[in-house]
């Protein structure tokens, strides 16, 4: 189990640093790339937790689609590809305070309740279990999500296209 913990620690450290970079860097494209690191790390965490299917979906959907979408957004809004001074709000102390307070509240609650909870050792789930569950118990939300994606697609096209 030590190996897993070490792996977790390294990955977590990388993810946190990358996440900080996402919100601190002055280069828009770099931010998107650091976001890829974070999202990849999340996928790794999913694998560590035995959720293979979610991990793979994470890589496909997020890194494959969302980040590309965001990069398109960066291009279309003609952000400079180099460093840009005008990405941040002038006042960043208040956001930091709010985030820190939020973190304090969350950490207190989480540690207080789950201090010693161990995760089960081997609990790898395969894609079939997930799909069975989706098509059995969650068929209604699944269909709803398909409608949602269609509506979002149509709406986004209407809103984003040039007249």
């Amino acid at each position: 189990m030590v190996a897993q913990n070490v792996f977790f620690g390294i990955m977590a450290l990388i993810m946190i640093c990358a996440a900080l970079k996402v919100v601190r860097t002055k280069n828009v494209v770099h931010a998107a790339l650091w976001l890829v690191v974070v999202l990849g790390g999340v996928a790794g965490q999913f694998l560590l937790l035995g959720a293979e299917f979610v991990g793979v979906t994470q890589v496909l959907v997020y890194i494959g689609a969302v980040v590309v979408l965001l990069l398109f957004g960066v291009m279309l809004t003609k952000a400079s590809l180099g460093e840009e001074a005008d990405l941040n709000m002038p006042n960043r102390t208040l956001p930091a305070i709010i985030a820190a307070l939020m973190f304090g509240v969350m950490t207190y609650a989480l540690i207080d309740t789950f201090r010693d909870t161990e995760l089960p050792r081997e609990s790898v789930t395969n894609a079939a279990t997930v799909s069975d569950s989706i098509f059995a118990d969650y068929i209604v939300p699944f269909e709803a999500v398909s409608v949602l994606l269609l509506a979002a697609l149509i709406g986004a096209v209407v809103v984003a296209r040039k007249e």
Binding site: Y138, V140, P141, A144, V145, L148
Partner: peptide, 9 residues
Amino acid sequence: ITIFVALEL
């Protein structure tokens, strides 16, 4: 899950 999806929809 249904509540969340319905909310987003």
